Computed example of a mutant assay.
Amino acid sequence: MASEQMAERAEAAAPAPPRPLDAVDQDILRILQADGRASIRSVAERVHVSRANAYARINRLVEDGVIRGFGARVDHERAGQGTSAYITLKIVQNSWRTVREQLRQLPGAAHIALVGGDFDVLLLVHTPDNRALRELVLTRLQAIPEVLSTRTLLVFEEEDLEPQA
């Protein structure tokens, strides 16, 4: 009986399958990725639908979790975060959720991915300088009990690819 209740709870908590996106939805996504501040009016004009239709579609994309939020693309160097690095981590088997929660708390953590291959986790960080990066790796990361090893790849130059509108 308890396992049936747990299965029912898991099904209730599972997100609904995503609705298919048509060409207009895809165009709206491209426009908003290129300019998250685009007005509903300009989006509607560019995809050739009414403002009400564009508004409803954007709201549906947000409600369905396709659009997770709106934000600014930051030049990290100009923002005082001039050192970037990818850090690979090998972690204790089955500790991903625990490690992920700890990595989210790290200052400058920008991207976390569970991956397959020679390591388990890929972490992108932005720090003010090499000293702060060293502190983050040697003091914070290596203090996480589930982290078995790390390897730091210093980024010499980076460029975010801009979505095509």
Rank of each mutant, 00 (worst) to 15 (best):
A2H: 14
A2F: 12
E4A: 15
E4P: 08
Q5H: 06
M6H: 07
M6P: 15
A7P: 06
E8R: 14
E8C: 15
E11V: 09
A13W: 03
P15L: 07
A16H: 08
P18E: 14
R19D: 12
L21D: 01
D25S: 11
D25I: 04
Q26L: 11
Q26F: 03
L29V: 07
R30G: 08
Q33W: 00
Q33C: 00
D35I: 02
G36K: 03
R37P: 02
R37N: 14
S39P: 08
I40W: 02
S42K: 05
V43C: 03
V47Y: 04
H48F: 07
H48E: 08
H48C: 08
V49E: 14
A54N: 02
R57V: 03
I58F: 04
N59G: 14
R60D: 09
R60Y: 03
L61A: 02
L61D: 01
V62E: 08
E63F: 06
D64H: 14
R68I: 03
V74N: 06
V74M: 08
R78P: 00
A79Y: 15
A79N: 13
A79Q: 14
Q81R: 09
G82C: 01
T83K: 01
Y86G: 00
Y86K: 00
I87Y: 00
L89T: 15
K90T: 05
V92K: 08
N94D: 10
W96V: 02
R97Q: 07
R97D: 07
V99W: 02
E101K: 07
E101Q: 05
Q102L: 09
L103D: 04
R104H: 11
Q105A: 14
G108V: 03
A109F: 02
A113C: 13
V115M: 09
V115D: 08
F119L: 01
V121M: 15
L122H: 10
L122K: 06
L123I: 02
T127N: 06
D129N: 11
N130D: 10
A132F: 04
A132N: 09
A132G: 15
A132E: 15
E135S: 06
L136Y: 04
L138R: 05
L138S: 14
L138K: 09
L138G: 14
R140P: 03
L141W: 01
A143I: 11
A143S: 11
A143L: 15
I144D: 11
I144C: 07
I144Q: 04
E146N: 05
S149K: 14
S149F: 04
T150H: 01
T150K: 01
R151W: 08
L153W: 03
L153R: 02
L154R: 05
L154P: 10
V155L: 10
E157P: 00
D160C: 09
L161D: 05
E162W: 05
Q164K: 07
Q164V: 14
